[in-house]
Measured scan of single mutants.
Amino acid sequence: MLDDRARMEAAKKEKVEQILAEFQLQEEDLKKVMRRMQKEMDRGLRLETHEEASVKMLPTYVRSTPEGSEVGDFLSLDLGGTNFRVMLVKVGEGEEGQWSVKTKHQMYSIPEDAMTGTAEMLFDYISECISDFLDKHQMKHKKLPLGFTFSFPVRHEDIDKGILLNWTKGFKASGAEGNNVVGLLRDAIKRRGDFEMDVVAMVNDTVATMISCYYEDHQCEVGMIVGTGCNACYMEEMQNVELVEGDEGRMCVNTEWGAFGDSGELDEFLLEYDRLVDESSANPGQQLYEKLIGGKYMGELVRLVLLRLVDENLLFHGEASEQLRTRGAFETRFVSQVESDTGDRKQIYNILSTLGLRPSTTDCDIVRRACESVSTRAAHMCSAGLAGVINRMRESRSEDVMRITVGVDGSVYKLHPSFKERFHASVRRLTPSCEITFIESEEGSGRGAALVSAVACKKACMLGQ
């Protein structure tokens, strides 16, 4: 009897593995994704193909990295998701002549009506938060230079001027797309009239992360975010950046690689679950690469896999709870928690219980395998993109072996128990001629924006502006 049951459990697990095998990517698959990513990057950089390229390769006008001589107080704003952060950054000489960066910050959550109302409502709310922060720190009387981390696709015309191309991540505030974001912020500050600010720089969160990590390690020339969304930036040779005049030196390019796949480059790798996630998203047909990796989508992918296993009578005796059938019910943090389970399955059992399920031991094991399959594919897909960037940098610099540091931020990278190990191992397999160091950014977005502002202020002083 026991043997029969054991055989049935083994057969069930084997069927589960057959279904989950769809998520496995072979090294040849990853090399294919990497080569296609490089081709799209090239198209994004070139003037004649930029418009139709899915990977936009947006110039950021960040050319210099901090040298350690900029000092002063800077205000930093960070808008990239449902939370908005205001930070005071003091850049100065530390002990023994070292450079020191001290920060104080406060988080504000953005109400739904500000995210989806008008641009005026959104930026009025942001300036209200700045006003509140300055009151708390008794700094209303000071006109501070301000660095703005704005983590949406922007076409820069200068370091302090950028046109919002399109909202992502659930934002829909009308009247912002096609307009200068810094102008919208300046107008809102003017409307309030109770404080003055000098907006000197606007950067993407990947750029802010790279600059913040450069402060720790001067070989950091790539910034990457794996959180709600997924994106990367890197220092490109100016001669390859056709959208900006000049051939000397390097400029940081914001790849906006989340949109890779929007022209069909990933079609052969998309599964039924991916198509369902895409169809029910706020932007169907867009940001397809990001939807395979980002935390906004990972939990939902797992939920759809679990429903398939229920329908195949391989999980929960073929019956799903009402909660499990509800879109968004299986949160991405559950994926991390399930994979963090120590082996007694308590954590998995508790999560499934909150979803109205009474799982068996085998159910718990199957749910864990589903989570591992989805998150491992995410790590491997992400590795193909980064390997594409790094191999490109090595080739354009004609280096036999390139040493490089990548600064990384984002909740999936930082909080998932195995993502970074799987990701690092896969990147290294795909970049055999590179020695890569990964560092995690601390308060990256805010500190990085302030350091970019410090560079901009120093330049302005040198130019006598």
Rank of each mutant, 00 (worst) to 15 (best):
5 R>L: 15
10 A>Y: 14
12 K>Y: 15
16 V>A: 15
32 K>M: 05
36 R>W: 02
37 M>E: 01
37 M>R: 00
39 K>M: 07
44 G>C: 07
51 E>C: 15
55 V>G: 01
57 M>R: 00
59 P>A: 03
61 Y>F: 06
72 G>Y: 00
76 S>G: 05
78 D>I: 03
82 T>C: 10
93 E>S: 11
94 G>E: 03
94 G>S: 12
98 Q>M: 09
103 T>E: 01
111 P>I: 09
112 E>Q: 11
114 A>R: 13
114 A>V: 11
115 M>N: 08
118 T>L: 06
126 I>R: 01
127 S>M: 12
129 C>N: 03
132 D>G: 03
136 K>I: 09
138 Q>V: 08
141 H>V: 04
143 K>Q: 08
145 P>Q: 01
160 D>G: 11
161 K>R: 11
162 G>N: 06
166 N>M: 11
167 W>V: 11
172 K>V: 05
173 A>Y: 03
174 S>T: 02
187 D>F: 04
189 I>S: 03
194 D>V: 11
205 D>C: 06
208 A>R: 01
212 S>W: 05
213 C>V: 02
232 A>K: 01
247 D>T: 03
249 G>M: 00
254 N>G: 04
265 E>F: 11
265 E>A: 05
266 L>F: 09
275 R>K: 14
275 R>F: 15
280 S>T: 13
285 G>W: 06
291 K>N: 14
297 Y>W: 13
303 R>G: 01
306 L>R: 00
309 L>K: 01
310 V>P: 00
314 L>G: 06
317 H>S: 15
323 Q>M: 10
323 Q>P: 07
325 R>W: 12
329 A>M: 13
332 T>Y: 10
341 D>S: 01
358 R>M: 14
373 S>A: 06
374 V>L: 07
376 T>V: 10
379 A>Q: 04
391 N>C: 10
394 R>D: 06
396 S>C: 10
401 V>L: 10
406 V>I: 09
410 G>R: 06
414 K>I: 09
416 H>S: 15
421 E>G: 11
433 S>I: 06
433 S>E: 10
435 E>V: 10
439 I>R: 10
440 E>P: 06
443 E>C: 15
445 S>P: 10
446 G>N: 14
446 G>E: 13
452 V>R: 06
453 S>M: 12
458 K>V: 15
464 G>S: 12
465 Q>W: 02
